[in-house]
Nucleic acid binder design. Structure first.
Lengths: 221, 221
DNA sequence: CCTACCGATCGGTAGG
DNA sequence: CCTACCGATCGGTAGG
């Protein structure tokens, strides 16, 4: 049984709409849509089975096309992972910029960052990032991805440094605080059950309440 | 260049000691030692390259033996991972028992748990557990490992429940607190640099100070 | 402990 | 003449 491309993330379409689309939508756009559908399915399979254990045949099967056909849209398997990871950072600039608005209290910005991070890492591409990572990539490809990661890390470290300077945060090593934050949120896809009793926002609120206010009932020095 | 078995985790031995050992140590023990060396090297390579990207040839090469020879000590590749994961939990009972000593304050037990967890996950077998996980295992093999994981998770959840009841901890959903704690420590092998400026104990102290007392300079409701 | 292989499947590409 | 796609097979390597 094979899923249609539409099920892969594009809006659902009827046969009539598909026909209309075929008449009206330029070929480049159809090509780009199909490419995106491939990336989304690949991201799901990579996150589920790992990079090496996912064959191009499996990706093709999910899309109802043969493996050879994939090569009209992609260069090779590694490039597929590369673009999945790039896409996992697609909203990064917006978030990073909001973190620099000093009119908002540091802790409020930190909560916003956590919420953005948690939702990003629990999307198809974000799950691919945290479950697979960049280990399968060659060095040349992984430097690009590492640049995104360093940018996010620096954003948190700067926020912490700023919060300590302003007296909003207790003194703490910014690299360790940042690593702690990414660790707890990057691990969420390993255990989170979308059908369970907690939502992603529940997770964000619980984690951030604890990190900001502490788990101890009586605050200690 | 191939590492000797001794470099793989056994005590260093001179050629003379090896000869003496060959005379005195029973064959079963030598066999078991070699098997452990295989597991340790495998755990390192699995953590570094992933399970599928690590071939049995690579493991053999590091040990100075051919792939076929490995099969005198192991059944198959999956069994190697299985025992690496089992070994990653070898000190679990001792830690779990100490967590049940109610004469020690909850927060103190929690700090001890975190320290044990952090050190365990940054050993060869622990890194294999958190970097590879149990995804490559068949269902039959992975249930055993999941039992260990649930036992650790339950230990934390029980500790949290107990701390809330005794008034030592603020109310918090125990499963989420547990997931947060494992997430931040399980992620450490992804970024930790043994030659960097922080030690594992620095990481534990910073993480636990923040989780227990909060990052905010002024405690908030 | 090694040489010599196997059935299968991998990523990637040929001609049409 | 182009796009999109097929059946078949390439060279290499996996676990065993």
């Amino acid at each position: 049984m094979s899923s249609s491309i539409d099920e892969a993330g594009l809006p659902a379409t009827t046969a009539r709409q598909t026909a209309a689309r075929r008449r009206k939508v330029p070929p480049e756009v159809r090509h780009e849509d199909k490419r995106l559908a491939i990336l989304r399915i690949a991201a799901q399979l990579f996150a589920q089975h790992g990079y090496e254990a996912t064959s191009l045949d499996m990706i093709g099967e999910q899309l109802g096309m043969h493996k050879a056909t994939l090569y009209h849209y992609i260069k090779n398997k590694e490039e597929v992972l590369y673009f999945c990871l790039v896409k996992s950072f697609e909203n990064i600039d917006e978030v990073v910029e909001r973190m620099q608005d000093r009119s908002v209290p540091t802790l409020e910005r930190l909560r916003y960052f956590a919420r953005s991070l948690a939702h990003a890492q629990n999307s198809d591409f974000g799950r691919c990032l945290v479950m697979v990572g960049l280990r399968p990539l060659t060095n040349e490809a992984s430097v690009d991805i590492r640049r995104f990661q360093r940018k996010l890390d620096k954003t948190v470290r700067d926020l912490v440094t700023e919060g300590i300077a302003s007296g909003e945060l207790k003194p703490v090593a910014p690299p360790l605080f940042s690593a702690m934050l990414f660790g707890m949120f990057n691990w969420v896809p390993q255990w989170f059950d979308a059908n369970g009793k907690f939502s992603i926002d529940d997770v964000v609120d619980t984690f951030m309440n604890t990190v900001i206010n502490g788990a101890a009932a009586t605050p200690r020095r």
